[in-house]
Every structure is written in structure tokens, then in C-alpha cells.
Design a protein around this nucleic acid. Structure first.
Length: 369
DNA sequence: TCTTTAAACCGCCAAT
DNA sequence: ATATTGGCGGTTTAAA
């Protein structure tokens, strides 16, 4: 008899689902052979070059074992104006929104002026506003006509998706500074300010620029598996996997309203992961009973306190393995996991790779095969 | 690998 | 009346 509510089982199921094809992406896979998967990056006027480069960098670095590119990248400027591109990658530039017609994945990147769009004053940059309007109308049409197309946004570009109605009744991530106004403007959107990114199937949103990298990696992982995504991560010199956050599967009461009462305690705990932290310690810091703390934590974060703690500890251990040559025992100690045996156990369960092999992928010289 | 033991988890429910 | 709290205890999980 398998325990029904075993969290570990859940996690392992998640991991398997993550590396295996799922039904909702079947369409993308079957279409892969006729022509490469086409990613269209939508640049609004005033686009921020740094953010514009994120999808092309990540998708551009994705290649199969033979080195052939897995994605074809087209950047299109909404207003038909010129877009500065990165010469390192084969990026086609298209003027206007026509390129959307045969997109498999669309990524909308943020632009200046979006972050304070529709602020209380009502003073909206009209050029940006017109472009947002045009882009969202085009996305709306695309979504209606070809429901399988993936549409993603990075940072404040969630504005465009929301305007198109694509986020109605769905969970969405956006930049934390942008979140309150955003939630007020689009009450139908379930804004989640806690997570890095949210994959809601055909609509995906990332919170900030760095999480935009995480989201793009996540897409590569879904399309082509963990190996391909890790190759991209190494090429881009970023950690291969930051989880989008379990909160995406939690029903948030309503956007904006409840300030998470455990956030301060989480930050506090993150600073002392190397020490022993009991549930009682955390509850004491939050000035709540253990029972209330556990319950609130579960509601706000989506996982139980200890499970979250272990996740954070494994994440820290991975960072140490990636960036230092500390002995595995020392890594385990600094991450608060006690012994190397414990670290190995957790990494096997969540990452699927034991510590030394994991390090070898990042620091070949430090760990002779 | 198996055993032991402490801690965590969460449904239930009376008290607030 | 409804909502939140926090103690209890059976079951599950993790560390040694």
C-alpha cells in the first residue's frame, strides 16, 4: 500500500513528469521534425536590451547532441522599429507582428515604461500603451486561433498577457514591485508574488529577469529533457534548475491581500541554514504556536516547513558544489544537512545526481573521474 | 541494509 | 453566526 499523502512520492512524481513528455506538449514534439521549434521574442518599444537577450541566449544555446540548434529564434519589434540583437546567436529580426503567425513559443520581454504602466495617476506613456494594445490583441488572436502555442512573459511583460486576457483566472508571476498595481488592474488574475515563475501549461510567466532565465531553462527542460537543459545552463553559466515554486499549485486566497506572515521567518531561516532549526524555533521566531505556524506556512508556501527547509538546504549545497572545492562533508555541514550521507540521500531524491557527480558537471578539474 | 528514536505532519475539535 | 487558533495524538518521515 503506497501512502497517499507522501510528499516524497509527490516530488518524485513531479520530477519524472518534468523530464518526461507530457500530453500538453505533445503537439510541440510531433511538430519538431518538419521544422525547428520557432521561438518568437516580442520586443515592445523601449525594450530593455538585457532582458531582450535572455530568451535568445538560453534558447540559442540549446543544441542536440550533434550540436544542431533546437530552436529557431525570431525577434520582432511591435512597432516595426529596429531592434538591437546579439550577434553571437542566429537571431532573425522581423519588423511588426507578422512573425507571430508561425510561432510555436512566444516570449514577451519587458520594456521601459511598462513598470509604471497604469499607475494610480493614470499617466500612461501613450507609445508604450499603443504597443501593449497591439501586441496583446495579436496574442489574443494567436491564442484563439492556435491554442497549442505557448505564450510566456518575463518580468513586467506580464502586463501584455494580462491585457490580452490570457491570465484571467490563472496564476501568474510578475515583478514584485509591479505586482500590487498589476493585481489591482487585473483582478481576474491570480498574482503570486512568491514564486520565480509559473508554468500554467500554454501560458507561462516569470517574475524578474533572472527568473526569466529559469523559465526559459524550464521550457527547454520540458521540451528536450534535463540533459539538454543542463548543457544550456552550463553554456550560460547559470545554475541548471531553480524550481518555480510549489505555490503555483496552491490556491491563493486572492491577489494582493494577505501579507505572508511567515516571510520574515523564511528570510531569517535562510540566513542560518547551517544551524539546527527545529519547527519550534521557527514558530518562536514567527511568534506563533507550532500548529499555527505549520498551517500558515503550508498555506503560503505550498510545502511543509521542514520540506521547504530541506529544499533550501539542498539548493545551498548545490551552489557550494558548483562554486567551491569544499569537501562534500563540509558542503553538507555548511548547508545544515549534517553528513555527506544525508546530502547524498536528498540529492538522489530531488536532483537525481549524487554530489560528486553533480560537482563534476560544473568543475571537471576539481573532481577527477 | 535494518533498527531505533526523535521530530514533523496534519486531521480533528474545543476554545476563543 | 463564521473564522482562526492551538493542543492532542496517530501516522509518517528522517537521522543516527
Amino acid at each position: 500500500m503506497v501512502p497517499l499523502a507522501s510528499g516524497l512520492e509527490d516530488d518524485m512524481r513531479e520530477d519524472r513528469a518534468m523530464s518526461a513528455p507530457t500530453d500538453r506538449y505533445a503537439g510541440h514534439r510531433s511538430r519538431r521534425h518538419p521544422r525547428p521549434h520557432r521561438v518568437v521574442v516580442v520586443a515592445l518599444p523601449g525594450v530593455i536590451p538585457f532582458e531582450l537577450g535572455i530568451p535568445s541566449r538560453v534558447f540559442g544555446a540549446a543544441a542536440d547532441a550533434a550540436g544542431r540548434p533546437l530552436y529557431e529564434i525570431v525577434t520582432c519589434s511591435v512597432d516595426g522599429g529596429p531592434v538591437a540583437t546579439d550577434a553571437d546567436f542566429a537571431v532573425t529580426v522581423s519588423h511588426g507582428l507578422g512573425a507571430l503567425a508561425d510561432a510555436d513559443t512566444v516570449v514577451v520581454v519587458p520594456a521601459r515604461g511598462l513598470d509604471d504602466a497604469g499607475e494610480a495617476s493614470g499617466a500612461v506613456d501613450t507609445a508604450v500603451d499603443a504597443a501593449v494594445e497591439a501586441a496583446s490583441a495579436a496574442l489574443r488572436r494567436l491564442h484563439d486561433r492556435r491554442p497549442g502555442v505557448r505564450i510566456a512573459s518575463i518580468c513586467t511583460a506580464a502586463e501584455v498577457l494580462a491585457r490580452a486576457g490570457l491570465l484571467d483566472d490563472r496564476p501568474a508571476a510578475t515583478h514584485w514591485r509591479h505586482a500590487p498595481g498589476f493585481a489591482a488592474r487585473y483582478p481576474a488574475v491570480r498574482v503570486d508574488a512568491q514564486v520565480l515563475y509559473i508554468d500554467d501549461g500554454d501560458v507561462l510567466t516569470a517574475a524578474g529577469a533572472a527568473s526569466g532565465v529559469d523559465l526559459c531553462l524550464h521550457i527547454v527542460r520540458r521540451d528536450h529533457g534535463v540533459e539538454a537543459a543542463n548543457r544550456v545552463a552550463r553554456a550560460c553559466v547559470v545554475p541548471p534548475h531553480r524550481d518555480g515554486g510549489q505555490a503555483q499549485y496552491v490556491d491563493h486566497p486572492m491577489p494582493g491581500s494577505p501579507e505572508s506572515s511567515t516571510a520574515a521567518t523564511r528570510a531569517w531561516a535562510l540566513d542560518r541554514l547551517d544551524t539546527a532549526l527545529t519547527l519550534a524555533d521557527l514558530a518562536a521566531h514567527a511568534a506563533m504556536s507550532v500548529r499555527t505556524f505549520t498551517r500558515r506556512f503550508r498555506a503560503e508556501v505550498g510545502v511543509s516547513p521542514n520540506r521547504w527547509l530541506v529544499q533550501q538546504r539542498v539548493a545551498l549545497a548545490r551552489r557550494l558544489l558548483e562554486t567551491t572545492d569544499l569537501p562534500v562533508d563540509e558542503v553538507a555541514r555548511r548547508a545544515g544537512l549534517g553528513t555527506a550521507a544525508s546530502l547524498r540521500l536528498h540529492m538522489a531524491a530531488t536532483v537525481g545526481v549524487p554530489p560528486t557527480a553533480y560537482r563534476r558537471a560544473f568543475r571537471p578539474s576539481a573532481v577527477p573521474a
